[in-house]
Amino acid sequence: MSTLDKSDVEKIAFLARLGIDEQDIPEYATNLSNILDMVEQLDSVDTDGVKPMAHPLDAVQRLRADVVTESNDRENLQSHAPEVEQGLYLVPRVVE
């Protein structure tokens, strides 16, 4: 049985960079724990020797020819961007 507590939820929320209201954390913790309990039904299934299935069809990747097909469309692509200057997307200062 997986029981997630407040600090688990906070840790996962930070990994996902997801703001969650403090007062909602207990409810998330409960719901997430319930969902995890539900999915843990799979634990009892014998899957020894079963190949993981990533795609419904056992297809393989098609290869694209190395040709430039796109041209400069910056004005259109940036026309609804939140914050742009001199063609650059702006974000709060990144410190390395």
Binding site: E83, E85, Q86, G87, L88, Y89, L90, V91, P92, R93, V94
Partner: peptide, 14 residues
């Protein structure tokens, strides 16, 4: 990331 000052912000060129 371009760190020249854009009003204290970083500019991103993709």
């Amino acid at each position: 990331s371009l760190h020249e000052s854009f009003h204290g912000q970083t500019g991103i060129d993709l």
